[in-house]
Design a protein around this nucleic acid. Sequence first.
DNA 1: CGTCTATTTGAATGTACTCAAAAGCGGTGG
DNA 2: CCACCGCTTTTGAGTACATTCAAATAGACG
Lengths: 193, 193
Amino acid sequence: MERYKLIESLSTQSNIPAREIQKYLDMAEFRKVKKNEHIVQIGDPRVTLVLIQSGCMMTYFEDKRKGMHVFQFGMEMWWSGDLEAITNGSPSFYGIKAILPSEVYLIDIHLYNTMLTEQPLFQRYFRIIFQNALISHQKRIVRNISYSAEEKYLEFIELYPKVQLIIPQKYIASYLGITPEFLSKIRRKLAGK
Amino acid sequence: MERYKLIESLSTQSNIPAREIQKYLDMAEFRKVKKNEHIVQIGDPRVTLVLIQSGCMMTYFEDKRKGMHVFQFGMEMWWSGDLEAITNGSPSFYGIKAILPSEVYLIDIHLYNTMLTEQPLFQRYFRIIFQNALISHQKRIVRNISYSAEEKYLEFIELYPKVQLIIPQKYIASYLGITPEFLSKIRRKLAGK
DNA sequence: CGTCTATTTGAATGTACTCAAAAGCGGTGG
DNA sequence: CCACCGCTTTTGAGTACATTCAAATAGACG
């Protein structure tokens, strides 16, 4: 996606004039990142929201026992970032890295607050963004507590047919909370039908 | 919690004058519900957000194979309801019932939209509510994909020490996505330490 | 006190994980 | 353009975690 299209979309969604969206985007840090490059490391004190203009990003975290887990994938026009860290100023619990060459805008805490206070329509914009994100998080929890691994995988490829083609299978397994070996076995079983 | 305290809290959180909060609360349907009484049934076409003044509610859903699952618990001052149904007008995927005698306000789609359009500060209020809800949903997903059943349980009683005392254990098991029998075994194991 | 539901227990089963090794695949340099 | 290297995926055997089913026990409430 190109910059002007991103601005158009944001303008339409938010009812904020394109020229004003542009003003705030200019205040954000724009970055082109290569495949596998990190834009946020776990523990970074400087926390930002990330708006993806093009490419594909992934958010991950770690636990001591089992290492890295994929928290979510982000595509064009999606937001990522550690909302909790943004909210209370703690260091980032998540890391964010590019799965494909990508272009992103980094909105730090200060800019986020500026946008919300200077332009009240951003309150509405983020209310809608968060409301929709909440819905999809709720659905994911529903699947987490009621689906088998196989069902989770089938639902995933149905929900994100594009993502599924791009990213390594082991990341899908991690996102679903299963091991890559077991996902491989699920796929073998499904293929034999 | 009493009505005037609820109004005070909402007013403080939202920066909206108490008298105006009161006006919208008066437009909502107020209901006292008995223990185990339902305020929303799965599939209900009339969908509402629920603001809990007192007591304890639980949101649940069903799948054909394993029956009912607890989606979440709601305490005083919390919101519940099917956001997706509110957003797109579909029938409710979730049911809501009282675990304790409770008092709730029901905000239907129409009133929700009225509040958002008439009083822009509600955009900010719900932006904050959703932002915080999103954070706790994200954390729950993190636990879902990276914790064992035992760890999930320990985290639960730490996060919700009050809820844990009130509600039947089988509902906690369901919330965590495990069977009541297995939770019982986890507790036995933990007790023997 | 009796009934109904929740919890506990145990045995058998199934689902998913670990570990180790082999096969596949993509990018890089010669 | 091919060969090699590193990483991902597959495979299989053994194990651990969690479920199912059935029955016994405990608790709550009228």
